[in-house]
Structures are given as C-alpha cells and as structure tokens.
Computed example of a mutant assay.
Amino acid sequence: MENVQIRPFRATDVPWLVEQHGKYYARDEGFDASFGALVQSILEDFVASHDPARERGWISECDGERLGSIFCVALDGQTAKLRLFLLLPEARGRGLGKRMLDTCMGYARSAGYAEMRLWTHESHRAACALYRANGWQLLASKPVHSFGVDLVEQSWKIQL
C-alpha cells in the first residue's frame, strides 16, 4: 500500500463507484438494487451541482487501481456531511481508511465547516470503530427496513 494515492474524484469514477457499492453491499449486507440506485442518484447530483469551493470527493488508488472513495458535501452552511465512504476489502486494515477520513475532515475544516455528520449502519463495525477512535459521537440509532433488509441505522457527528 506504499503507492496509494488519494486523488480528487472525477465524473468518470461514477460507474465504478456505483458498481462497487452495489456489489459489496449486496454481497456483505444483502442489500437489494435500490442501494445502487441511491448511490447513482447521489453521484449524479454531485457531478451536476456540487459547490467546488465547499464540496469534494476523493478516490484512493494504487498503481491505477481504485480502492475506495469518500465525499464531503454541505448539509447546511456550518455542517458538512461525510458520504460514500467505501474501502474495498483488499485495502482494509492498513490505515488507508484513516488517511481517507483525515483527508475528508481536514478539507471540511479548511472549507469553514464547524461540524460534520454522517449516516451509516451499525453492521459496519470497522467504520464505526474508526469514527469513534477519531472523536465522532453516536447521536442516534434506530431499527429500520431499508434496501430490502432489516438494519440498525446510525447518525454520527463531530465538532471540527
């Protein structure tokens, strides 16, 4: 993982991101196709209308192979939202997730946000442990039925 870079997201990354989210969430969580459709919609909106002064996305890659993504978008004037944080299984456990999270949070600070929020599921234990270890606080947790499965949805925040 020495050659890993975290580069800016490009619109040409959209098909790969939709495919990877759909593939891994179906395999690991049992999600149905509605999840891939949601990712597609989020990315189309980002490409069409994000504010480049306050919103960014990044792709991690090694030797031209994409490994993951993370996005910082505006929730409101003072709050950023972390979105589409994905790290392929073969890239996990080597500190890349922390590097990506640090990149996103550092950008949010430099863009003038006072706080960040995110939405996830408790089944993402490694990601939740990473958030907690980096100062994020769990705001709420509730059972839901989404993407064809029963889940426990979580909301997290951190003061920047």
Rank of each mutant, 00 (worst) to 15 (best):
R10N: 13
V39K: 02
I70T: 05
R94I: 11
H121P: 05
G64N: 04
E65P: 00
R125P: 07
A91V: 10
K98V: 11
G36I: 00
I70L: 07
R94P: 00
F46I: 05
H124G: 03
K81L: 13
T120D: 04
D76W: 00
C128H: 00
T79Y: 12
G97F: 08
A111C: 01
R10F: 14
K98T: 11
D13V: 04
V144Y: 06
R117W: 04
Q5S: 04
K81N: 13
R66D: 04
G57I: 12
E115R: 12
V4E: 07
L138M: 09
A126T: 04
S123L: 07
A114N: 11
P143R: 06
I70P: 01
Q137R: 08
E65K: 07
L86M: 15
K98R: 14
M116Q: 10
R66G: 03
G106D: 05
C128F: 02
Q20L: 06
E153G: 09
I70H: 00
G97H: 00
G95Y: 09
K157G: 00
L84M: 15
W136P: 03
L87F: 07
R132W: 03
V39L: 03
E153M: 08
R109K: 13
E29V: 11
Q78V: 04
C72H: 05
S49C: 13
S60P: 08
P89Q: 10
A53P: 02
P15Q: 03
L84S: 13
R125K: 11
V18Y: 02
A91T: 08
Y107H: 03
Q40I: 10
L96M: 08
Y25M: 11
T120M: 05
E65H: 05
A33I: 09
A37V: 14
D32P: 06
D32Y: 05
S141W: 11
R83I: 11
A33D: 13
D13I: 06
A129D: 08
Q5M: 02
E122S: 13
A26D: 05
L67G: 05
T12L: 10
E65D: 00
L96K: 01
D28T: 09
A74M: 08
A91F: 03
W16C: 01
Y107S: 02
A127E: 01
R83E: 10
A126R: 06
E90L: 09
S146R: 12
L138A: 01
S49E: 15
M1F: 05
S123H: 09
I6F: 12
P89T: 11
L38F: 12
L43R: 04
E55R: 14
S141P: 11
E2F: 06
F35M: 07
L88S: 14
C104E: 15
R56M: 15
V152P: 00
G30N: 00
L160Y: 08
L86V: 15
F9H: 14
L96P: 04
A53I: 01
R92A: 04
N3Q: 12
A111S: 06
G148F: 11
T12W: 00
S110K: 12
D150R: 05
E55D: 14
V73A: 07
G68V: 01
D28P: 01
K157E: 02
D32N: 14
L75F: 14
F147H: 12
S60E: 06
Q40A: 14
K81T: 10
